[in-house]
Computed example of a mutant assay.
Amino acid sequence: MEYLNIPTSIFSSPEFIGAEPAQRATWIALLGWCCDQENGGVVRGCRHWNDRRWMQTCGVTSEEVGLTSDLYRFEGDDLVVYGFPRELQDAVQARRFANRENGKKGGRPSAEKAPQETEEEPTDNPKETEPKPTDNPSETQPEPTGKRKKERKKERKEYTPPYPLEGEAGECADYPLDVFVADIRTCREAWQVGELTRRERQAAAAAYRDLGAAYRNHAETVYRYYLSPQDKDRKGTRYFRYDDLAAFLNNLRNVISQAQRWADDQQ
């Protein structure tokens, strides 16, 4: 979970009111780490952690955790944190699982678009179909637009990612647009809330036309890459992760390359 959801009633509970400021701050740090790990509010096997281990893991010291408080307590070797939103964690995990299962099954069939009529209506007046005369002969000569477009295409350099994309790109009946978008929205919890904006819908349609079925072979790697807290590779080079969904879609090829580089670094 990427957000810390705390009901306001907790701040008027006896556990919170009876705690010292240092205990409250420690509780916030522990609760935030538990939400990030989705561990149900239990830090397992941590009773004998040293001070350095506590600081690197949860951002608190062993002395602060050792303070007696109703906001957190040891049960055996495990530390139980009060007020963890377990129901929210279950809902997030269930929604994430459902999105991924729908992607494996092919998702819902896309609605067929009705054919658009493009035939021109006939006219009884021949004068309307005749071109208007002009005194400037240069205006009657069409511009060589086709030649210019070919020249521009030659000048453009297509981006080739360092890691090849597996699978056939483009639209695919077995991997429709709604499943493609659902797989991408699972990468960040914030992207799973609400409807897509117009800008995001346009970016999704363009990315689907560009990659389509090819993304299906990289969806799991991209998903794990975005869940990983690792921000640098072994050489110290930073990874980048887009927080904006439209930017993610507009740069999907770069995202896949970063995810593949991260996956290779884990081996």
Rank of each mutant, 00 (worst) to 15 (best):
A91R: 15
S228Q: 06
N251W: 09
A263N: 11
P144K: 11
M1F: 10
R199Y: 07
D174F: 04
D264A: 14
S138K: 15
W33Q: 14
T197N: 02
V92G: 01
A263L: 08
L245R: 05
S9D: 13
S9R: 13
T237W: 02
Y159M: 04
N250L: 12
T129V: 07
S110E: 15
Y223I: 01
G170M: 03
A29C: 13
T160W: 06
A247Q: 14
D70I: 00
R86C: 03
A169E: 14
K104P: 01
G59Y: 05
E2Q: 15
T160S: 10
V81S: 02
K104V: 11
E121N: 10
G212C: 04
G18S: 15
G212K: 06
G236S: 06
P126G: 13
A190S: 15
T118W: 09
N5R: 13
F240C: 03
R148L: 12
N5Q: 10
R108W: 03
G66N: 14
E166P: 00
L67Y: 10
R47T: 02
R86H: 10
C35R: 11
R234A: 11
R44N: 05
S257V: 02
D70W: 05
D210G: 09
Y226E: 10
Y223K: 10
P109H: 10
I17F: 00
T237Q: 09
T221K: 07
E155K: 14
C58G: 09
E128N: 09
D135C: 07
P131W: 08
Y223M: 06
Y239G: 00
G45A: 10
S12D: 12
E220W: 07
E87A: 14
I6Y: 03
A206I: 06
K154W: 05
D51M: 08
W33A: 13
K104W: 11
E75D: 13
R156T: 05
R224E: 11
E38Y: 00
T140I: 10
L79P: 04
Q267K: 14
A94H: 10
W262R: 00
A246Y: 04
W49F: 15
G18F: 01
A111Y: 03
L165D: 08
F84A: 02
R261C: 06
N136A: 00
P14G: 06
C187P: 00
E112C: 04
K153W: 00
P14F: 08
Y159A: 07
S257I: 05
C46T: 14
R148M: 07
V60G: 03
K104Q: 12
E101F: 09
Q202H: 06
A19V: 02
L71M: 05
T160I: 12
G236Y: 08
Y163T: 09
N99K: 03
P137C: 08
Q230Y: 01
N136P: 00
E171Y: 01
K157Y: 01
A219T: 04
